[in-house]
């Protein structure tokens, strides 16, 4: 299914670590302003896939990729300004990372590095991002304290706030709820529904039900292969095209 209005288009994507091929030729589209779910057991190539999307795979030594990744119809691996491109993709890694800077600087770091200096604009941006990440109320009185001293759940929300700080067009979340409690997870899920208005969201999740709650369409990866991609409701209602998908969503393995 080729959609010309796709925000992100991936075609025949392969990736290797050394000699080991971990993604075996995947093709899919992500539509603008949708939440696109990716599910699959561990080691199925989900994180590697995300890394090829924002061109950070090259930081892993010995890694290699092949295939086409397009954003807005442009081959992203032909973009010269790689930093400018990465800015357009927000990435939230599974483990929370507070940078050893103040909470304020954690969020202001990326905008500053892109040349934003105006104090008022920065203040406003920092507050907006922290509010969106459901963290503002907890930290507004201690923006000067270290980001690394926050609790795990708070650091995860700080990571989300950082990912929003550079105004991405696409936001990738890699199992963001792994380190936070259910209540906060629900809060962030609400935020994601709101953010969908202004950006495209790719949600890799370990919680199958989370994909069901949020994503309109979902893709199921297994051992680096795309097993099935399609309407989330259909996939979860038990009449998925591939029997493996049915087994996975019903909890038979994974």
């Amino acid at each position: 299914m080729v959609n010309d209005s796709a925000k992100i288009r991936v075609e025949n994507l392969k990736a290797w670590y050394g000699q080991r091929e971990v993604v075996h030729g995947i093709s899919f589209d992500v539509h603008p302003n949708e939440i696109f779910g990716i599910i699959g057991p561990a080691q199925s190539g989900k994180t590697t896939l995300l890394k090829t999307l924002n061109r950070t795979l090259e930081f892993t030594s010995g890694s290699r990729m092949q295939g086409l990744v397009e954003m807005d119809g442009q081959d992203v691996y032909n973009i010269k300004d790689v930093y400018g491109y990465r800015r357009r993709v927000g990435m939230v890694a599974p483990l929370p990372v507070g940078l050893p800077l103040s909470i304020y600087d954690n969020v202001a770091f990326a905008p500053r590095s892109f040349g934003l200096k105006d104090k008022d604009t920065l203040d406003e941006l920092v507050q907006k991002c922290l509010e969106q990440a459901a963290l503002w109320d907890e930290v507004k009185d201690r923006l000067d304290s270290l980001g690394t001293k926050l609790s795990g759940g708070q650091q995860q929300r700080l990571t989300i706030a950082r990912a929003l700080s550079h105004q991405p067009e696409v936001l990738c979340l890699d199992e963001f709820s792994i380190a936070i409690d259910p209540v906060t997870t629900m809060k962030i899920e609400d935020v994601l529904m709101e953010l969908r208005e202004s950006m495209t969201i790719i949600l890799v999740t370990n919680l199958i039900q989370q994909a069901r709650r949020l994503a309109k369409r979902t893709m199921f990866l297994l051992n680096g292969d795309l097993v099935e991609e399609g309407d989330t409701e259909k996939m979860f209602s038990g009449d998925a095209a591939n029997p493996k998908t049915n087994e996975f969503v019903s909890g038979a393995f994974g």
Binding site: D81, Y83, G84, R87, P111, S113, F114, G115, L116, T121, L125, H166, Q167
Partner: peptide, 11 residues
Amino acid sequence: MQLQRSKWKAF
């Protein structure tokens, strides 16, 4: 709000 690295900075 424009987030763009200046040419000079890249150089």
